[in-house]
């Protein structure tokens, strides 16, 4: 039954796949990405990373949807959120997902970091990926902090004030930090504009490419099976695989010449 469905599907899909493959090479790329042997024993622990990625994607998606209605001015910010929560179709759902997935993201990203730490996954050759991960967790924390100031309600605004107050105690550059974050000497329209730019443009723009590098390095070195000393075995397998591929390549070369 399955083979019959498979044969039928192949007849339809194969020409499309071939057409796309010839022009973009996307099929080979997908095969390369998907058919990767990964350690079995860390299976559920490794879902922490993908869960982080999923929640960040949810943030991007719901954040873009919220931008359809959110107005980043001191006069209208609160009202626009009130409007989202009362009148917009699925408004409470979209904002609820944005709020709750941000909160859960803080837990999951922390667990992901702890997993990496306790399994020693930051050891050579994965040091750079750990460093990028620390930058990512910093960016996510600042995103979370700027996020609730955007509500421009009492809670968010005063929390932001406290944050600026703490920032103003930075040795040597405290005054500049406070002026930069306030957009002047006191809180006002410029403050909200800055929070908005930081939360919606600056940090997501920094976050996205770093996530890309994080994933690239993950694939380059392979998923880590540290606690079971698995990585060495996987590396050996890769090496053998490459040797075999090279042998095949040479064989093919001789065939074409002969």
């Amino acid at each position: 039954m399955i083979s019959r469905i498979k044969g039928w599907t192949l007849g339809v899909v194969q020409p499309i796949a071939d057409w796309t493959e010839e022009r973009t090479g996307v099929v080979t790329m997908l095969e390369h990405f998907l058919y990767e042997p990964v350690p079995k024993r860390g299976k559920w622990l490794y879902t922490l990373g993908s869960a982080t990625l999923f929640l960040i994607n949810l943030q991007f998606l719901t954040g873009i949807l919220l931008l359809f209605y959110y107005v980043p001015t001191t006069d209208n910010a609160w009202d626009s959120i009130y409007y989202i929560m009362t009148d917009v179709y699925f408004g409470p759902l979209i904002r609820g997902i944005h709020f709750w997935s941000a909160n859960i993201l803080m837990i999951v990203i922390g667990m992901h970091m702890l997993r990496t730490f306790f399994s020693g996954a930051y050891k050579a050759p994965r040091e750079i990926n750990w460093v990028i991960g620390v930058v990512l967790i910093m960016l996510v924390t600042i995103l979370a902090f700027t996020g609730y100031a955007l509500r421009w309600d009492q809670e968010g605004f005063w929390a932001w004030e406290v944050g600026i107050k703490i920032g103003s105690y930075t040795p040597f550059v405290g005054a500049y930090v406070a002026t930069f974050l306030l957009g002047g000497d006191t809180a006002g329209p410029a403050t909200l504009a800055r929070v908005f730019v930081i939360h919606v443009w600056l940090l997501p723009a920094a976050l996205a490419p770093l996530i890309g590098i994080h994933l690239y390095l993950l694939r380059k070195h392979g998923e880590f099976g540290s606690e079971f000393e698995y990585s060495k075995r996987l590396a050996e397998l890769r090496e053998r695989q490459q040797i075999e591929e090279y042998a095949l390549y040479e064989e093919g070369d001789e065939d074409s010449r002969g």
């Binding site: 609820g96 709020f99 709750w100 309600d153 968010g156």
Partner: peptide, 15 residues
């Protein structure tokens, strides 16, 4: 997350 967004709406205190 979907369940929470209905059960506990995202907070919005006074302006």
């Amino acid at each position: 997350v979907v369940a929470l967004s209905y059960l506990v709406p995202a907070p919005l205190t006074e302006p």
